[in-house]
Design a protein around this nucleic acid. Structure first.
Lengths: 251, 251
DNA sequence: CGGAGGCTTGAGCGCCATCAACGAGTGTGG
DNA sequence: CCACACTCGTTGATGGCGCTCAAGCCTCCG
């Protein structure tokens, strides 16, 4: 698989003026503005299974998930489905579809949730300010990067690797927001959700989780994930992704 | 798989002021500006295998692919790789990583190409204009939507469906730019590229293509794709994706 | 207490990976 | 001009990871 070409590959090198600082400043400013807009937006409490975004309709705006989890799902006619992304508390929902005239996917809460709702008009106003527009573009970039990680994993990693990657990903995201202890967190997803997210079946998820428990690596009980061997989990997840194509070639 | 819950799902309905026209106008204006910037940017001719974006480095700016194809690839330490997106003539390369401080993936041309190169400084300037910033955000959204399609396909469709979907996708994108006849186009990818893009092996791609030819649906010879039975191809690709989760439930 | 949703486990099989080998086409240097 | 290296495409044999089908269990809740 993926045999490396030995042919020399040329490179495009360009002059790169240092415009990063200004970009970083813009992003920070945009983040503050969006955050402020979110805080002043109405906060509502919704139940599990609430549809936040309906596919093939223009978006109603942005949702800032203050508490609870949600999934973005795509369906096929025969009932197959794929969960393309999973939102944890603190995430912004709807940026991907805010600019599209029809949302490609359905977003549904998978637990009771509290959300700030920024209506479409306000979003349109925010886009008129360069810093917030830039920040929103950055948010979408980040979302895409995350999605690419999952896509690559589904395409090239086996069930254990995918599951390890997902569990670690949730752990890191929650830790960053102080919503997880060093070795444990709450995961309000069913095994069916996990299966649809990782491109596997519920039966295989169940067996793989069983293996993780038997190996004393990760234990999931009652939607509580307990990481017993973080190093081993990281090793399985191949967290050490190669830093580059060319750098990896040692022959 | 994907058993539907019979539990009633509540809905969030919001007031939705009609801000679409202004958004559309902004997008159009942004598109024109970016297009102009692209046209006034230097045009260069590069060979196949040219590295346009190196992973883990800040991006050098944007590339407008005027002629030729390119791939965006992610590598693992053990040599596995995933081609996360494929760029055809007319596509803009580098928007996904323009705002990130390190590009997640490597972008390489897979055929001789001609590209307009917009340097990072110019891009930073473009971001200060709301219409172009909005347009760039829209471009990233579109890119993500496309990536989600591939991700979902890899997770839930089999080899024939994935291949059919990919061949149709290329056909439509090229047709939109008048770069393909109604039933044929040039595809400068090797079977290894296709395999890495669809999460399969080169051997299986080869066998599936053999089947497509035997069934007189699609014929690929010398990098020329000839569609012999478009209806059947569409049928295999399940192009008729469900329009929504709830609408599909008939029980 | 009955029903629904979710979890668990067993048996069998199929899609796709792996390993291996070969041919065609192309560029390269002796 | 031919040997050589290299890439790409092609095909056969074999096996395994994960799917499918099926059944039983647990927990929660009206």
């Amino acid at each position: 698989m993926a045999v490396e070409s030995k042919k020399e590959r040329s490179d495009v090198s360009l002059l790169r003026p240092d415009c990063r600082p200004r970009l970083a400043e813009n992003l920070l400013q945009g983040a503050r503005k969006l955050h402020a807009a979110s805080l002043s937006a109405p906060l509502r409490s919704v139940g599990s299974g609430t549809v936040l975004i309906r596919p093939d309709r223009p978006s109603d705006g942005l949702f800032h998930l203050y508490r609870g989890w949600a999934t973005r799902t795509r369906y096929w006619t025969d009932g197959r489905r794929a969960i393309l992304s999973i939102y944890v508390p603190g995430d912004v929902i709807g940026i991907e579809s805010a600019l599209l005239d029809r949302a490609p996917d359905e977003v549904v809460t998978v637990s009771p949730a509290m959300i700030h709702t920024i209506d479409a008009g306000t979003v349109a106003n925010l886009m008129t300010s360069p810093p917030t527009a830039t920040y929103i573009a950055w948010l979408i970039s980040e979302a895409q990067r995350r999605g690419d990680g999952v896509a690559g994993a589904i395409g090239r990693l086996d069930a254990r690797e995918r599951l390890a990657l997902m569990l670690l990903d949730f752990h890191e995201r929650l830790r960053r927001r102080n919503l997880a202890s060093p070795s444990s967190y709450v995961l309000p997803l069913t095994q069916q959700h996990i299966a649809d997210h990782l491109g596997l079946t519920i039966v295989h998820i169940n067996r793989t989780l069983h293996w993780f428990r038997a190996e004393r690596i990760v234990d999931i009980e009652k939607h509580i994930v307990t990481i017993r061997d973080l190093d081993r989990l990281r090793q399985i997840a191949m967290a050490d992704r190669a830093l580059g194509g060319a750098a990896r070639r040692t022959a």
